[in-house]
Design a binder for these strands. Structure first.
Lengths: 336, 336
DNA sequence: TTGTAAGCGTTATCAT
DNA sequence: ATGATAACGCTTACAA
C-alpha cells in the first residue's frame, strides 16, 4: 500500500520538501500561489501526513494505553467506551490490553505498553495485583498514569472510583425501607478496598435504622462461580432467623445469588429481595424485585481519560493528585 | 519521561551506534565481548527499542485497526476480546474505534485509521452503512481488510459471520419440538443480510415440520427501544389465533420482548416461549423458558484477527478470499 | 519566498 | 569486528 509523502509532492511540483511542508502546515511567509498549488495537489493525491514520522520527531505517540482485567466485561467495556469517546475527541487513540485478572500478564502488558511509547496509561488493576511496583516505577519516570475502579493506595496519582460507600448505603437503605430487616451481605474479599467500602456502607445504613449488625449475615466469597455462590446462599438461608434480603457486592455475585434462589425455588419478590452492584439490565426485566446500584462506568472512563489527557498535555511537574468519587445511582425497574 | 536510545549506549560505551545495534540484534560477526558489554549495559539501563523508529523504517506499525458499531455491546466486546488475544499473541496491538452506528462516524474512523498507518483493518459495519466505497477504496489500495458479523456483499475480501441460517433454523426447531406451532418472528430490517438469513432459517424449519408460513407472524422493527418493541408484541398478541412463542432475531429484541410480556403479565414458561439470538445470561437465570442461540463472538474475533494477520504477513497478491460461517449453539438453561 | 541540512531512533550497506 | 553514512517522513533553524 503505497502512500504519498511530502517528498513525492515536492518532486511532482518541483519544490523542496520544506516548502511543501510549510504550505501544508499553513506556515508563515509562503507564497499564496505556491500554497494553493501544494494544497490542491495534496488534496488530489489524498495526502495524509505520516503520524509515525511525526511521533518520532515530536516524541509523542498520540496514543494512550488502557489495561483492564477483561474487555468482555460489561463494566469495563462501558468504561472503554467512555475512554474511547474522550480520547477520540482530543485526537488520541486507544491501545487496549487485558490482564485477564493475572498479575503476570498485567506486568507484561505494562512492559509492552511502555515499549510502545504511549503518552499515558489508564489502568484498572487485576484482582491478583497487590504489588504495584511496576506502575510506581513508570510513574516515577514521569509517565502520566491514572487508575480507575481497581485503584491502589500505594501510588500517588489521579484515581477515579465509584462512591462505593454511599452506593452500598443506599442499597441497604432501599431494602430496609421496603421492610426488610435481616439483610444478608454477599461480598468478595475482606481485603479489597472496594469491598471494605461497601461493607462499611452496609453497616452504616443498618446503624441508621437501628438494626443490629450480625456478622453471621456477611459472607465472603473466595470465588465467583455459581456453585460456590450457591453454597453461600444456602448456608445463609439455613440461618435462624433466615435473611429476608440479599445485598450482593458485585454483578457476578448478584447473578449467582439469583440463580441459586431460582434453583431453590424461592420466589424473589415475595420472600427475599436482592440488590446488586452494577448493571444487569436483562435480569431487571424479569425480576422487578432486583434493584441495582448502577456504577457509572461510562462516566468513569470519560473522567479518567480526561484527567490523563490533561496530565499529558500540561506536563507541568507539580500536580495535586486527586481521587474522584463518582456517584452511583439506584435503579429499580418498578419504582414509584 | 526520558528513555534511553542506542545512541546513549554507544556514547556511554564509546562505540558506534551500528555496533550497538548489531550487538542488540544478535547480528552476525560481532566481538562476543563487545556484545556482552552492550547487552549488560542495555539491560542495566532498561533499554527498549523505540517501536516508532522501527515503524518508520520498516513502514509497518504492528497495529491493526478495529472498527465496531459499539464497544459497550456484549457481542462486540467479546469479539474484541478474541481479537486482542490473537493480536497480542502475534505481536500486534489493537487500535479500537467505534462508529456508534453512524455512517459518518464510520467513514471518519476509516480515515483516522488509515492515517494512523495500521497494518490492517477489521471492521463490522454500522447498520446505517450501505455504501461501502470507503472500504473498497482502501482494500483496492492494498490494505488488508477483513469484515466480520456485519459484512457486505459489495467487497471481495475475507468475511467471518455466524451461521445465521442454521442458528435460526435450530431455534425455530427447538420451539416446534417443545410443542409450539404459532411462532412469531421479531426481526429488524427486511434488508439486512443477517436478518434475511435468519428469516430464511425460520421459514425452513417451519417447512420441515409442515407448519404453514404466516407472514402476519413476522414483525419488522424499525427501532429497538422497548416502547416500540412492546407495540409489536402487543400487535402480535392480538392476532387470532395468537402466537404461542416468539423467535426474536437479536438480543435487544429479545429483551424488549421479555419486558413487554412481563408488563402484560404473561408468564413466559406457560404461555409463550421466547428465544433470542445472542448471549443474555442474566435473563436465562430468571427465565428457564428462554433459550438462546449463542453467537460465537469470541471465536469470531479470533478467527477474523487470524485471517487478517495472515493476510498482512503473507502480502502475496493472489488470495482466495473466503467467507467463514461459524457455528452457533443453542443454550437452554434447563436442558435435559 | 524558498532551499538546504540536521535531527527524531533505528538498521542496512558499504567501507575500513 | 567496527565505524560512517544513508534512509524511513517530517519539521524547523539557518542560509540564500
Amino acid at each position: 500500500m503505497h502512500t504519498i509523502t511530502i517528498k513525492d509532492i515536492a518532486k511532482a511540483l518541483n519544490l523542496s520538501t520544506s516548502t511543501v511542508s510549510r504550505a501544508l502546515r499553513d506556515s508563515y511567509e509562503i507564497n499564496p500561489e505556491t500554497k494553493q498549488l501544494v494544497l490542491q495537489y495534496a488534496e488530489k493525491m489524498n495526502y495524509r501526513p505520516n503520524p509515525i514520522a511525526l511521533s518520532l520527531r515530536e516524541n509523542k505517540s498520540w496514543a494512550i494505553g488502557v489495561i483492564v482485567p477483561e474487555i468482555a466485561n460489561h463494566y469495563f467495556s462501558q468504561a472503554i467506551n467512555g475512554i474511547e469517546e474522550t480520547a477520540y475527541k482530543r485526537g488520541y487513540h486507544v491501545m487496549i490490553f487485558q490482564s485477564n485478572e493475572s498479575y503476570e500478564r498485567e506486568v507484561a502488558n505494562v512492559g509492552h505498553i511502555v515499549a510502545r511509547r504511549v503518552d499515558g496509561l489508564l489502568i484498572s488493576a487485576s484482582n491478583q495485583t497487590s504489588d504495584i511496583s511496576h506502575l510506581k516505577e513508570l510513574h516515577e519516570q514521569g509517565l502520566p498514569v491514572v487508575m480507575f475502579d481497581r485503584v491502589s493506595d500505594e501510588i500517588n496519582t489521579h484515581k477515579v472510583v465509584a462512591d462505593n460507600f454511599t452506593g452500598a448505603f443506599q442499597a441497604t437503605e432501599h431494602l430496609i425501607s421496603s421492610g426488610r430487616r435481616r439483610i444478608a451481605h454477599l461480598t468478595s474479599s475482606e481485603f479489597v478496598y472496594i469491598s471494605k467500602e461497601r461493607l462499611a456502607g452496609y453497616r452504616a445504613a443498618l446503624e441508621k435504622y437501628g438494626i443490629p449488625f450480625d456478622e453471621k449475615l456477611v459472607h465472603y466469597s473466595k470465588a465467583f462461580d455459581s456453585n460456590y455462590v450457591r453454597e453461600s446462599v444456602e448456608a445463609l438461608l439455613h440461618l435462624n432467623p433466615k435473611p429476608d434480603a440479599f445485598f450482593t457486592a458485585s454483578d457476578r455475585l448478584a447473578l449467582g445469588c439469583l440463580e441459586a434462589l431460582h434453583d431453590l425455588n424461592i420466589k424473589i419478590p415475595e420472600e427475599v429481595a436482592i440488590i446488586g452492584f452494577t448493571n444487569i439490565h436483562a435480569a431487571h426485566l424479569l425480576s422487578p424485585a432486583l434493584s441495582t446500584v448502577v456504577q457509572p462506568a461510562f462516566e468513569m472512563g470519560k473522567t479518567a481519560a480526561g484527567l490523563l489527557l490533561d496530565l499529558i498535555e500540561s506536563k507541568k511537574k507539580p500536580v495535586e493528585f486527586k481521587t474522584i468519587n463518582l456517584q452511583t445511582e439506584i435503579f429499580t425497574r418498578k419504582s414509584s
